[in-house]
Measured scan of single mutants.
Amino acid sequence: MAEQVALSRTQVCGILREELFQGDAFHQSDTHIFIIMGASGDLAKKKIYPTIWWLFRDGLLPENTFIVGYARSRLTVADIRKQSEPFFKATPEEKLKLEDFFARNSYVAGQYDDAASYQRLNSHMNALHLGSQANRLFYLALPPTVYEAVTKNIHESCMSQIGWNRIIVEKPFGRDLQSSDRLSNHISSLFREDQIYRIDHYLGKEMVQNLMVLRFANRIFGPIWNRDNIACVILTFKEPFGTEGRGGYFDEFGIIRDVMQNHLLQMLCLVAMEKPASTNSDDVRDEKVKVLKCISEVQANNVVLGQYVGNPDGEGEATKGYLDDPTVPRGSTTATFAAVVLYVENERWDGVPFILRCGKALNERKAEVRLQFHDVAGDIFHQQCKRNELVIRVQPNEAVYTKMMTKKPGMFFNPEESELDLTYGNRYKNVKLPDAYERLILDVFCGSQMHFVRSDELREAWRIFTPLLHQIELEKPKPIPYIYGSRGPTEADELMKRVGFQYEGTYKWVNP
């Protein structure tokens, strides 16, 4: 592979701008107003304001973009700056750019259920340069409990009458099928589907988006991507930290609602779906819905739930269990780990287990898709061969690698495990991989909904998990304890083995 010439960040961002501006969906010269509902909250200060700053800094926003914060707290732009700027990672050389960014910011205080507050917000936006005809993007960085009041008031008082209007809704989209349907029906009564952007930030990850290209742009994968060759698929999300004093919020939802029903299920769809007619948003989402419709409700015998306990040999936070978090209700049975087996009941995947695993306070930070292939028929190497695996590593250190057998150097035919490896950090030294939120917010500006969740996708996802969630809430089974920093409950490994996964433990990928 030829040595790549190092590029400056300015040059890299210039390439990104060229890609972005050559499309006809990006209205570079139009006025846009980006409204952050819930501007005083954690999500706004840690993710949304920093993301908008990065896009502005790199010249990736339309030229005439204004940012308006809205929340109940009586704040000023200076207050917003004070709480969000520490997350910007701005350099001293960017000081003038930073001043320009905050000059485009404003803030309006108001209630979430008060019509007069929204009329005041609308008047404020109209007073901005060309504000009355601007395109408006409303980001709901809010708890779902206020979605209905907020969307109703936005629709009645704050819509642009000339430009387009788009609304970005953060997960969780309800707690179960019934609450999700209620919320979807409410929002759909106010906005068209092409105006609604239900954001799952995992769909903005580079390697998640790469799944489609790997599958449908490489001839070698087509013939082997089926039940005849693939023994099982494992989708993993692991965090090495616990709730760390923020367990009160987590306890309301648990690990299945927080990660599995959305992030992991979306990745499953991209692995299992048929080739779409095109890369058009609805063509892709149509195929994802077909996959979900082929999955039956989760069966309790295919589920393992766990909850982390303190590690007596650990240090600091590792010595504390979930129930030691003062914000967690006493005696909570909320799971911090889950392993679930699903089956896609169609011709391509009949009988292939899709194993979804996620948890907190585990032994490493990792998100990946792992396809394990069947054993080689007619073994001539005296059971020395391990199964081939194709691994798409989402985070950290984005990579695609194939675990395969090669001859060990020497005189004899002794096979050993090795890999074919594409590590993004080595291959793409001159490429700026956008943060997931950067990519998705740019998608909203461009009107691309491919990486957002459609209402029928959402409904099918909740259909699969709601009976299990209701059973857990009714019966309150005690989750299996696992030690902070471990791989999780051993019962999860036993479940995976029972459905056909072979864990060798003899080879570990190392970032080159």
Rank of each mutant, 00 (worst) to 15 (best):
L7C: 06
E239M: 11
I15C: 06
Q111A: 10
A141M: 02
L7I: 12
L128R: 05
T243D: 12
A78I: 05
S132F: 11
G110R: 00
S184L: 10
E193W: 02
I36H: 00
I154Q: 00
R57H: 02
L235N: 00
K205N: 15
K45L: 15
L137H: 03
D113K: 06
A71L: 00
N122Q: 09
L137D: 01
A103P: 02
K97Y: 04
L235I: 12
T91Y: 08
R17E: 05
N185K: 11
G163Q: 00
M125H: 00
I162S: 09
G204L: 13
S157N: 07
A103Y: 08
Q161N: 05
I199T: 03
R104E: 01
E206M: 10
S160M: 03
N135Y: 02
S189M: 09
H124S: 04
I187G: 03
E170P: 12
F241T: 14
S184A: 09
Q195P: 00
R81V: 05
Q28C: 10
G204M: 15
T236I: 02
H155I: 02
P172M: 05
P143L: 09
D24S: 06
S84A: 12
S188Q: 14
N153D: 03
E94M: 03
L60F: 07
L128V: 08
G222D: 14
N210V: 04
I162G: 09
V146S: 07
K95D: 07
Q28M: 11
V169T: 12
F241P: 07
V208Y: 15
L75P: 02
T10F: 08
S29R: 07
L235M: 07
Q83K: 11
Y197N: 01
P86M: 07
P240I: 11
F250D: 06
N226I: 01
M37D: 00
P172Y: 06
F191D: 02
F101M: 01
A71I: 01
S157C: 12
E94Y: 03
I255T: 13
I220Y: 13
T151S: 08
L177V: 09
L203C: 14
I52N: 00
S184W: 05
F101T: 00
I234E: 15
Y147K: 13
D58N: 08
R104L: 06
D114I: 05
A149Y: 11
Q209I: 13
D251F: 00
T65L: 05
L75W: 13
L142Q: 15
C13R: 09
E156Q: 07
Q83I: 05
V150E: 00
E148R: 14
Q119T: 12
T151D: 01
I230V: 10
L140I: 06
L140T: 02
N229L: 02
G59T: 02
K152S: 08
I230C: 06
E170N: 11
K45V: 08
T51N: 05
F221G: 03
L61V: 06
F237T: 05
D200H: 10
S160K: 04
P223R: 14
T65P: 04
L137V: 15
R182Q: 12
L60T: 03
L61Q: 00
I234D: 13
Q178S: 13
L75Q: 05
S157E: 09
G14H: 08
E94W: 04
I220Q: 08
E63L: 08
I187F: 11
D200C: 12
R104N: 03
R57D: 01
H186L: 08
G242A: 07
H32L: 13
R17H: 06
E63I: 10
A25P: 09
C232P: 02
Q119R: 13
K238H: 13
Q22A: 13
E94L: 02
V108R: 02
D181Y: 05
I167Q: 00
Q209A: 10
S180T: 09
N165D: 04
P92F: 11
I36R: 01
V68D: 00
I224V: 14
I256M: 09
F216W: 10
Q28F: 13
S180C: 01
Y49F: 04
A134S: 15
D113W: 08
Q4V: 07
G222I: 04
T65W: 13
S157L: 12
F237M: 04
Q133V: 08
Y197P: 01
Q209T: 12
E63M: 07
L98N: 00
A39S: 02
A134E: 13
R166V: 01
A149Q: 05
N165E: 01
F26T: 08
A116T: 07
V213E: 14
P62T: 04
L137P: 00
D113H: 10
A71W: 01
N122H: 10
L43S: 05
T91S: 10
N229I: 02
L61T: 03
S73T: 06
R104K: 08
I154W: 00
T51I: 07
V146C: 07
R257M: 07
F216M: 04
F66R: 08
F102M: 05
L98I: 05
V150H: 00
R227T: 09
A116R: 09
D251A: 05
I199H: 08
L7T: 04
Q209R: 10
L98H: 02
K97W: 02
N229G: 09
G222A: 12
Y197E: 00
F26N: 05
V233A: 06
F56I: 03
V146E: 10
I36P: 00
H186Y: 09
D114H: 13
A103Q: 13
F26D: 05
R81E: 03
D114V: 10
S84R: 02
R9F: 05
S160G: 07
F87V: 03
D251C: 03
E148N: 11
L121R: 00
H186A: 08
V68M: 03
T51C: 08
F221M: 14
C232F: 02
R17K: 08
G110Y: 01
V146G: 06
L142P: 13
I35Y: 00
R257C: 11
E244D: 12
L183N: 09
R198M: 02
L130Y: 09
F88D: 01
R227M: 04
L235S: 02
L130W: 09
G163H: 02
A2C: 11
F253Y: 08
E63N: 09
A217R: 03
D42E: 14
D181R: 04
L7S: 08
A6E: 12
A6S: 12
H155G: 06
Y112F: 04
K47S: 14
V108A: 02
L20P: 11
L177S: 05
A116I: 08
Y147C: 14
Q161M: 07
L16Q: 06
S84I: 13
F216H: 02
R81Q: 04
Q4H: 11
S184N: 09
M212S: 02
A71R: 00
A109M: 12
Q178R: 10
I187R: 02
E63S: 09
R219V: 13
N64H: 08
I196H: 00
R192I: 04
L190I: 09
A141F: 00
E252Y: 05
V12W: 11
N135E: 02
E3G: 07
S180D: 14
I36E: 00
A25M: 10
M207L: 13
A116F: 09
K97E: 04
F21R: 12
L177D: 05
V169Y: 05
Y147H: 14
M159T: 12
I52H: 02
F34L: 03
I33P: 00
N210Y: 05
I187A: 11
R9G: 10
S179A: 08
R198T: 03
F250C: 04
R81M: 05
R198A: 04
K171L: 06
G204F: 15
D113A: 09
Q195N: 12
K46G: 03
Q83C: 13
E156P: 03
R136M: 06
H186Q: 13
G163A: 06
K46L: 05
R257N: 15
R104H: 07
T76V: 05
Y118M: 13
D58K: 06
F173H: 04
F138K: 00
V213C: 06
I162V: 11
L61E: 00
